[in-house]
């Protein structure tokens, strides 16, 4: 901690310099993150119901049904993504073959697709002019139903889960599986007794990531859920159409706390999070 002359003629200690380095970050996050979030919280209690608004979310059927539906779709997405991405991830990390890199790119590229684009891709699959409707004899349109929403969420969850599972699979010792096999374990038992326990922290972490992302997904819901009440869409309509600012704020706070807590769990288990988007 010595005081040294600087080329500009004044002196500056290490400590002041390091503090000066942190100042822009501190000011920016105070002005544009801390204060706005405090305002959001205060606003949630300023409606007619006061702070009981948080009880209203559970008491009023419209909000409770929304909450239940969002949790159910997100859970379905999580389990489907876990099943698909764990299988694909184990396959890609245990086998080396031509085209492996291409498959991996295809499976991870959608990471930076915005939710709206993913919604549109689902419309191309299951909309009125969609692929399925063209290929099948009947009138099959599912893009704007819960199934379409589920497929959209699955689309952005597969890459996220895959990356976390593959990182963990690289650390899993293939010799353990080999040993189980030579001792006569069936492929099913190898999966249940060796692979799944070894991957468990990664599975919980990536499951939490998938669930949190699906809960908060706005872009995909915005394109597909025109008639489906999921939390982000209800926040959006409460704010823009009903001008019910207090309820929009309260739902945002609840949603924010849930997704933040889930991702905290995910990070403590896997050390990294591939969140964001949807």
């Amino acid at each position: 901690m010595g005081v040294r002359p600087s080329p500009y003629g004044h002196t500056m200690t290490n400590r002041t310099f390091v503090l000066a380095c942190l100042t822009p970050l501190f000011i920016f996050s105070l002005a544009f993150l801390a204060l706005p979030l405090v305002r959001l919280f205060l606003e949630s209690g300023s409606g007619e119901a006061g702070w009981a608004i948080y009880l209203d979310i559970l008491r009023r059927p419209r909000y409770l049904n929304t909450l239940v539906l969002t949790v159910l779709v997100s859970l379905a997405t999580t389990f489907a993504a876990l099943a698909i991405s764990t299988t694909a991830g184990m396959f890609l990390s245990r086998n080396r073959f031509r085209g492996r890199g291409t498959l991996l790119s295809v499976l991870t590229l959608p990471l930076a697709f915005p939710g709206v684009v993913i919604g549109f891709l689902i419309i191309l699959l299951g909309g009125r002019q969609g692929l399925v409707n063209q290929l099948t004899p009947g009138h099959v349109v599912f893009a704007y139903s819960v199934i379409g929403l589920f497929l959209g969420y699955l689309y952005f969850s597969i890459p996220r889960v895959l990356l976390t599972v593959m990182a963990a699979a690289e650390k899993l010792d293939p010799a353990l599986e080999e040993a189980a096999r030579t001792m006569g374990a069936s492929p099913y038992r190898v999966v249940v007794d060796v692979i799944v326990p070894g991957l468990m922290p990664a599975l919980i972490a990536s499951g939490a990531i998938a669930f949190a992302t699906a809960m908060g997904a706005f872009g995909t819901a915005f394109t597909l859920a025109t008639n489906i009440d999921v939390i982000p869409m209800v926040i959006y309509t409460e704010f823009t159409l009903s001008a019910n600012i207090a309820m929009a704020s309260a739902l945002s706070i609840v949603l924010g706390i849930v997704t933040w807590a889930l991702l905290l769990i995910a990070r403590s288990l896997s050390g990294s999070t591939v969140a964001a988007g949807g």
Partner: peptide, 20 residues
């Protein structure tokens, strides 16, 4: 703290900014 916008949905962050 600065990582909050990764975990909290963008919609909530935007609402907070709009209100302030």
């Amino acid at each position: 703290f600065i990582s909050l916008p990764l975990a909290v949905p963008g919609l909530a962050i935007a609402l907070a900014l709009l209100q302030l």
